[in-house]
Amino acid sequence: MTLTVRAAAKVNLALGVGGPRPDGFHDLDTVYQAIGLYDDVTVADAAAWGVEVRPVGEVDCSGVPLDDDNLAVRAGRLLAEHHGVRRAAHLVVDKGIPVAGGLAGGSADAAAALVALDRLWELHTTDEDLLALAARLGSDVPFALLGGTVRGTGRGEVVEVLPATASCWWVVVPSGEGLSTPAVYRELDRLRPDAGPPAPPTALVAALAAGDVTRVGELLANDLQPAALSLRPELAAEADRLRDVHAGPVLLSGSGPTLLAYAASHADATATRLGLAEAGVSALVAPGPVAGVHVVEPVR
């Protein structure tokens, strides 16, 4: 028997980052949004844990681990441990979310694995326990379960669903080379040795609730962007090239290196993608917000 669950990519509408904590993490105050780029995770019972990753379109999967370091496998092991069951599964990940791009594809896979195996094994894990397990796996995993538009605090794992009525479109411009998230945070600490707590995204939350798409675009922010550009100066030139064909806001996704263009309509987003294509740059178009983890193929 197999079961397939779908999970969406993540962007940060606002990413406020505080100074380093004693545990090595940073306090965050962020607004997540799930966008319409997806990974599908198919699970089946197996004698031992295993994972297979298959690209969707032009996604480069060469950097995805195929052993116990894979976050989806770790999620499955954690779920089995939580329930005290001795089971294993084979996971197949059809990956449409660009890898190592600040879009939380690994976190999406972990969230999908939690839900898929919970359903396959009929464990009936509570939503509260699923979120707690997700938080143990990574800061973005609880959000990946929820999808939509969510505020994250703590290190990002304390999640609050926002009453967001604004919808938009994103032009996603992947990079051919990944960027280490820990390295970006280290560079941020070097650039801001006296950083205080993150600024709350109060105005952005209000604009989302009001459905003010234009104001949302004006309030997009990412505290990690200066550090990422410091490590990869060429990204600034790529952002300028994106602005040449896009009149709206442009920002870095998470710790990068993926660049994002925010658009109020599908027509605007498509025009930007076509402008990039004429310049020889590949890009994807995705709506936001979209649903979190959900079953697309039931047990069969």
Rank of each mutant, 00 (worst) to 15 (best):
V161E: 15
S230L: 05
G217E: 10
S255V: 02
S230F: 07
W170L: 12
G211E: 09
E160G: 07
T214K: 14
A228V: 08
V205W: 00
G248A: 12
N222F: 04
A199G: 09
Y185E: 07
A237E: 14
E238P: 00
G248D: 11
L251V: 13
P193E: 08
L191T: 09
E238R: 15
N222I: 07
L252M: 14
G176S: 14
A239F: 02
A228H: 03
D212N: 12
L229V: 13
V213C: 11
L191Q: 15
A183S: 14
V216R: 05
L260A: 07
E187L: 10
A207E: 04
L259F: 05
N222V: 07
V159S: 07
A221H: 15
L251I: 01
V245G: 11
Y185R: 06
P163F: 02
A237V: 12
A203M: 06
A207L: 04
D244F: 07
A227G: 12
R190H: 14
D223W: 08
E177V: 15
T202F: 02
L231Y: 02
P198D: 08
S253C: 11
D223C: 11
D194A: 15
A221I: 00
V173N: 03
A164T: 05
V159M: 12
A210H: 04
A199F: 08
P233E: 11
L231H: 05
T202V: 14
T214M: 09
G256L: 01
V161D: 11
V250D: 01
A183I: 02
A183K: 09
L191W: 04
A263R: 03
N222M: 04
E218N: 09
H246F: 08
N222Y: 08
R186F: 00
T214W: 13
A237H: 11
A207N: 01
G196E: 11
V250Y: 02
E238Y: 00
A239R: 12
T165N: 02
P197L: 10
A195S: 13
A206R: 15
A183D: 15
Y185D: 07
G196M: 11
L219K: 06
